[in-house]
């Protein structure tokens, strides 16, 4: 099964198996990675699953998937960078095996 590396703001690394078709937000929630909150459950209405895609992966993950995601990112609690994404909008595939995302200091 493909894995995702979640890097907490303090540098702690969580290596989690996330099945293809599942999104990166829920991969964190289901495995006690607390740096992602995902309070709306993936409905593009909260911006609490903000992550920074590792520069080595931005090409494969791509930019925000919709105008809603771009708008909501502006409401994120921490600095928004060119590699910012809402992790609920990143759907896992075999091609993303080994994906690394860094988590912001806070989601609120």
């Amino acid at each position: 099964m493909p894995t995702v590396n979640y890097i907490d703001a303090d540098g702690t690394r969580h290596v989690v198996e996330v099945p293809p078709g599942e999104n990166v937000m829920r991969g964190a929630l289901y495995n006690n990675v607390t740096g992602i909150v995902g309070e709306c459950g993936g409905g593009l209405s909260c911006a609490t699953c903000h992550c920074y895609v590792d520069p080595a992966w931005t090409g494969r993950v791509g930019p925000p998937a919709s105008q809603d995601e771009r708008d909501l990112l502006q409401a994120a609690a921490c600095e928004v960078r060119p590699n910012s994404r809402l992790s609920c909008q990143i759907v896992m595939t075999e091609a993303l095996d080994g994906l690394t995302v860094a988590l912001p200091q806070t989601q609120y």
Partner: peptide
Amino acid sequence: PRQTVLAFTVGV
């Protein structure tokens, strides 16, 4: 502009 609408509450 998209904002957090509180129709469904927020938080856990």
